[in-house]
Simulated scan of single mutants.
Amino acid sequence: MSYLEATNDLYRDAALTPEVGLCCTTNPIWQFPGLSIPKIMQDMNYGCGSTVAAQDLVNNPKVLYVGVGGGMELLQFSYFSRQKGGVTGVDVVDEMLEASRQNFKVAEEENDWFRSDFVNLVKGDALNLPIEDGSIDVAAQNCLFNIFKTEDLKKAISEMYRVLKPHGRLVMSDPTCEQPMNDELRNDDRLRALCLSGSIPMKDYIKALTDAGFGTIEIRARKSYRVLSPNHYPTDELIYIESIEIAAIKDPMPEDGPCIFTGKTAIYYGDDDYYDDKVGHVLVQNQPLAVCDKTAAVLSKSGEPFHISESTWHYNGGGCC
């Protein structure tokens, strides 16, 4: 049995018998005015963060969500895209698609604005998406891509890039790990399916996105997730795993490399009212400006009086690029 088959079996069981916190953290459930999320959807929230952000979801976007879970995020996306087929959910597991379909009937009873035909459920593979090129405004996945091994991860990301419109957004949440893992952990298909042993360092995760062509990367959250301890797992040391929320934007790749936002800010405190670097960044006296890591490095070497903050690993737009 391959690791992908093991993953499908795990989530087939999870669809038939919902298991709260199966593989991931119990994340806060974002509520919006007039939105009621059925309890069954909350019980089937198999994600390690959230991919739903209001700033991404303007003007009735076409949304793609891969790995439907119990349908919770599909319902949340529908809140912002109230049109027939405005949201497409893709999953390879028949039982998970059917569970979401049934959960939408409950959602219709609890939300007078929602109709099940707002969501188009499609059987499909993240490695070969049944979606047209350049047809999606916002693509998302939650705690799925970390399961993939290197070549499959590259393929899954390239598929998301393919279906996005220019300047479209790929919004994701996944576990990451900065420590090395031994082969026994890496090759344990169940631990990989449980969103544990497939976790890779953040820099490798970001590189996979930029290698696919995404010109702008936003780190929106970074938080504690799990530990693999020697008394419970085949490891000689305690391994700490975090989860991140990240957006990759299909902007043209700058000549000097991608713009990666990790939550740094720059404050100009010179004698003038403002500082203009002549390449698009104007910093007003003593006012913080969110900057990508690339701009932060340039400003810090400019010889001008700047305070450059450390990465906060939290960024929600409004920055330098």
Rank of each mutant, 00 (worst) to 15 (best):
residue 3 Y to F: 08
residue 6 A to S: 11
residue 7 T to G: 11
residue 10 L to C: 05
residue 11 Y to W: 09
residue 16 L to F: 08
residue 18 P to W: 06
residue 22 L to I: 04
residue 23 C to G: 15
residue 24 C to T: 15
residue 24 C to Q: 10
residue 36 S to F: 11
residue 41 M to V: 06
residue 42 Q to I: 15
residue 48 C to H: 04
residue 49 G to T: 02
residue 52 V to Q: 05
residue 65 Y to V: 06
residue 66 V to P: 01
residue 66 V to D: 02
residue 79 Y to H: 13
residue 81 S to F: 04
residue 82 R to D: 11
residue 83 Q to S: 14
residue 84 K to I: 13
residue 94 D to G: 12
residue 94 D to E: 14
residue 95 E to F: 05
residue 95 E to N: 08
residue 99 A to M: 06
residue 104 F to V: 03
residue 105 K to Y: 00
residue 109 E to D: 10
residue 113 W to V: 11
residue 119 V to A: 05
residue 121 L to T: 01
residue 123 K to I: 05
residue 130 P to S: 05
residue 135 S to L: 00
residue 147 I to P: 02
residue 148 F to L: 11
residue 152 D to L: 09
residue 160 M to G: 08
residue 169 R to P: 01
residue 173 S to V: 08
residue 185 L to G: 02
residue 185 L to V: 00
residue 190 R to L: 15
residue 193 A to M: 05
residue 204 D to N: 15
residue 205 Y to V: 07
residue 206 I to Q: 00
residue 206 I to W: 00
residue 207 K to M: 10
residue 210 T to I: 08
residue 222 R to I: 03
residue 222 R to E: 04
residue 225 Y to Q: 09
residue 232 H to V: 13
residue 232 H to G: 15
residue 234 P to R: 05
residue 235 T to D: 01
residue 238 L to I: 15
residue 241 I to T: 02
residue 252 P to T: 14
residue 254 P to H: 13
residue 255 E to M: 13
residue 258 P to V: 08
residue 259 C to W: 07
residue 261 F to A: 00
residue 265 T to A: 10
residue 269 Y to S: 12
residue 276 D to Q: 08
residue 280 G to F: 03
residue 285 Q to K: 12
residue 288 P to K: 07
residue 290 A to R: 07
residue 292 C to E: 00
residue 305 P to S: 08
residue 310 E to Y: 05
residue 312 T to S: 13
residue 312 T to M: 07
residue 318 G to P: 06
residue 321 C to F: 06
